[in-house]
Amino acid sequence: MITIDTFRQLALSFPETTEQPHFEKTSFRVRKKIFATYDSKTNLASVKLSETEQDLFSTFDKSIVWPVPNKWGKQGWTLLDLANIPAETFIDALTTAYRTVAPAHRSDRHVRE
Rank of each mutant, 00 (worst) to 15 (best):
M1L: 07
M1C: 01
I2W: 00
T3G: 01
T3M: 02
I4T: 04
T6M: 10
T6F: 10
F7Q: 03
Q9H: 14
L10K: 10
L12R: 12
L12N: 06
S13Q: 10
F14W: 06
T17C: 06
T18R: 09
T18W: 05
E19V: 09
E19P: 01
E19L: 03
H22A: 10
H22Y: 14
H22K: 09
H22N: 14
E24A: 14
K25A: 13
T26E: 08
F28E: 01
R29N: 08
R29E: 06
R29L: 07
V30R: 06
V30M: 08
I34L: 05
A36V: 07
A36Y: 05
A36F: 04
D39Q: 06
D39R: 08
D39V: 05
S40L: 09
K41S: 15
T42K: 13
T42V: 12
L44P: 01
L44I: 08
L44H: 15
A45D: 02
S46H: 04
S46W: 06
K48E: 07
K48Q: 12
L49T: 10
E51G: 03
E51N: 13
T52K: 13
T52I: 11
E53N: 11
D55F: 05
L56P: 00
L56G: 00
L56F: 11
F57T: 04
S58I: 10
S58V: 08
F60S: 11
D61K: 02
S63R: 13
S63M: 05
I64P: 07
I64R: 02
V68D: 02
N70A: 05
N70C: 03
G73E: 07
K74I: 03
K74N: 14
W77S: 09
T78F: 10
T78S: 08
L80G: 05
L80F: 04
D81Y: 00
D81N: 13
D81W: 00
L82P: 05
L82V: 09
A87H: 12
E88W: 00
E88C: 01
F90C: 01
F90E: 00
I91K: 13
A93L: 04
A93M: 06
A93C: 05
L94Q: 04
L94A: 07
T95Q: 12
T95C: 05
A97W: 00
A97S: 15
R99E: 09
R99Y: 05
A102R: 08
P103D: 09
P103T: 08
H105K: 15
R106P: 00
R106E: 12
R106L: 15
D108P: 00
V111T: 15
R112A: 14
E113D: 15
